[in-house]
């Protein structure tokens, strides 16, 4: 019984770690450019399809992964920012939010038109090892390890490097950052590219478990939003804690709770947090302007 629960915990942490990656990108975009990217979930689907498409076209896996990353950087990073966010940002949250939702629909329907509605398998690491009475999948270890390393690297980058600090300054106060001579525009672009890399990594890690399907984005996006809010919208660390917590809770609820209401877990958690702790797990309480 105990070992079953540990098994669940490991699987939950692995799922949660990928949520954390998506949520981190989401939080970064919000911080540096006030973009609430409602299409974030569908951003995960695109590189997944790009990779299996390139792989199926005959490229070896490493090259296909690289190709997926490049496509994500161009389409989800640069093009998203230049063509959609930049022209609309000055008109406030709402038009951009809706445009992002529409972009999500376009990505879903576009991939469906090209690849059809089936679910595709994604290359993964086979096998595992025994840990006491427990059988641990290499895949889970890989997911958890890669996600944690990525997040730690990101933290290091943001806190220790000059560019990272410039990005943080941009996030905290773009006007002052500009006055101090920080190339704010380049920093914002960098955030979008970083987000594209994060969703690509998340796609590689989560796709073996859920298969690649055109409408995966909906549930991934919702989980990532929840993770971001649970963790505190304005903190990278918070997004990680929120992602891990959510992944674990989802897995336990799926095993012990009623199956039909599985999808309700993140929603209830979300409502509870917004009502009773809007600053999130790790976020600082900020005074509301209103």
């Amino acid at each position: 019984m105990l070992w079953d629960n540990i098994d669940l915990l490991i699987a939950g942490l692995a799922t949660g770690a990928t949520y954390a990656l998506v949520a981190t990108g989401f939080t970064l975009l919000w911080q540096t450019s006030a973009t609430v990217n409602f299409a974030q979930g569908d951003f995960v689907t695109l590189p997944a399809f790009a990779i299996i498409g390139l792989h199926a076209a005959g490229l070896p896996l490493p090259l296909a992964l690289l190709g997926g990353l490049v496509i994500a950087l161009i389409v989800l990073g640069a093009m998203f920012k230049l063509l959609l966010v930049d022209p609309m940002l000055s008109h406030g949250l709402l038009p951009l939010g809706i445009a992002a939702i529409a972009l999500g629909v376009a990505l879903q329907e576009g991939t469906k038109a090209v690849f059809g509605a089936e679910a595709f398998p994604f290359p993964s690491v086979a096998g595992g090892f025994d840990l006491g009475p427990l059988f641990v999948n290499w895949q889970d270890v890989l997911v958890l390890g890669a996600a944690l390393i990525a997040v730690a690297a990101l933290q290091m980058f943001l806190a220790r490097t000059r560019t990272g600090r410039c990005m943080q300054a941009t996030a905290q106060n773009p006007t002052v950052a500009l006055i101090l001579g920080i190339p704010v525009k380049r920093m914002v672009m960098l955030t979008f590219l970083l987000n594209a890399s994060l969703v690509t990594l998340a796609a590689v890690l989560i796709s073996p478990a859920i298969l690649v399907k055109f409408d995966n984005g909906g549930s991934i996006g919702l989980s990532a939003f929840c993770a971001a809010i649970i963790g505190g919208f304005n903190q990278v660390r918070g997004a990680i804690a929120g992602g891990l917590l959510l992944g674990v809770l989802e897995n336990f609820a799926a095993t012990y709770g009623p199956d039909q209401y599985r999808a309700a877990v993140p929603m209830l958690l979300l409502i509870g947090f917004v009502l009773f702790r809007p600053q999130g797990l790790l976020g600082r309480a900020t005074e509301r302007a209103v």
Binding site: F233, P266, L270, V274, P278, R288, V290
Partner: peptide
């Protein structure tokens, strides 16, 4: 209690 995108998420939930 909350506004903007927080409210969007609560109502979405």
């Amino acid at each position: 209690r909350v506004q903007g995108h927080y409210l969007a998420f609560v109502t979405l939930a």
